[in-house]
């Protein structure tokens, strides 16, 4: 089976600061890969490299076997991307929930064209999936952080992505919303077979949700099945100090 993501010998630097070094990583279809690592470890950079927002100065990045540095790939393969901080530039951005989710159907291929009936159907389906269809006419600035996060997930899903990339989607969200959110991701991965890459600082939640885990701190320290994460002292090496995860029942779904 063709891997969804293949990173080979990827190095990324901002000026003279090396953020990622020698990253070789493969994400298979239907994987739910959790990216773990301390602040500043390069997790967000890694996701941006996969999303095509940053280019490595060395190494190759392939999506579905094709080099993303080349040509029209991104217009063919839809990536659902949920960034770390959703601010809408300002809380006064005058847009509705529906208008935001509709952007998930926009690609280079439908430039000059109006959205079709099918597009509108997919937008409504995505809103129903995240349980916020009733809020479709609501102004985005009137939503809570948790609702806004789900709206941007719906936006990503409306494009029927082959790969969903999420950067700390549960940061700043209360525990109740996090549990609902984790259940949503579980359905996407297990029921719909969607390949997911996600960063988080919640090691406990990641260990229950993700099928695989990658630990990054400039370099790749571990990449494998989630159950193998707690063997040895991998986490201590990644974080640079002793880490002893404590699991909470809320995360057991």
């Amino acid at each position: 089976m063709q891997p969804v993501v293949e990173l080979k010998d990827v190095d990324v630097a901002f000026g003279s600061i090396h953020v990622l070094e020698d990253i070789t990583l493969t994400v298979e279809e239907k994987d739910f890969l959790g990216l773990l690592g301390p602040n500043g470890a390069g997790k967000t950079t890694l996701l941006k490299v996969v999303a095509g927002l940053l280019r490595p100065y060395h190494g190759t990045v392939k999506l579905f076997g094709e080099d993303i540095a080349k040509s029209t790939l991104r217009s063919k393969i839809m990536i659902g991307y949920v960034p770390q901080r959703i601010t809408l530039q300002s809380q006064n951005f005058p847009t509705t929930v529906y208008e935001i989710v509709a952007t998930g159907r926009i690609s280079r291929e439908n430039t000059f064209k109006r959205l079709t009936e099918e597009d509108h159907q997919k937008i409504e389906d995505a809103l129903r999936f995240v349980g916020l269809y009733e809020l479709k006419s609501r102004m985005a600035g009137e939503l809570s952080g948790g609702q806004l996060q789900r709206i941007f997930i719906a936006r990503a899903l409306a494009g029927e992505p082959s790969l969903l990339i999420m950067d700390e989607p549960t940061s700043g969200i209360d525990i109740g919303s996090q549990v609902a959110f984790h259940s949503l991701l579980d359905r996407l991965n297990k029921e719909q077979g969607l390949t997911i890459m996600m960063t988080s600082h919640d090691i406990g939640a990641m260990s229950h949700m993700c099928t695989k885990v990658a630990c990054v701190n400039k370099k790749l320290f571990f990449h494998g099945l989630t159950e193998d994460l707690f063997r040895g002292d991998i986490l201590s090496k990644v974080y640079g100090y002793h880490v002893h995860p404590i699991f909470h029942e809320e995360h057991l779904m």
């Binding site: 999303a51 095509g52 927002l53 029209t72 991104r74 217009s75 839809m78 990536i79 991307y81 960034p83 809408l88 530039q89 951005f93 847009t95 208008e99 935001i100 509709a102 952007t103 926009i106 690609s107 280079r108 430039t111 109006r114 959205l115 936006r155 494009g159």
Partner: peptide, 19 residues
């Protein structure tokens, strides 16, 4: 729709392949 998308979030528009 493209101008709205780029105004909403440049990064998301880039990921969708918009110039």
């Amino acid at each position: 729709k493209e101008m709205f998308y780029v105004t909403l979030d440049e990064d998301l528009a880039k990921v969708s392949g918009l110039p």
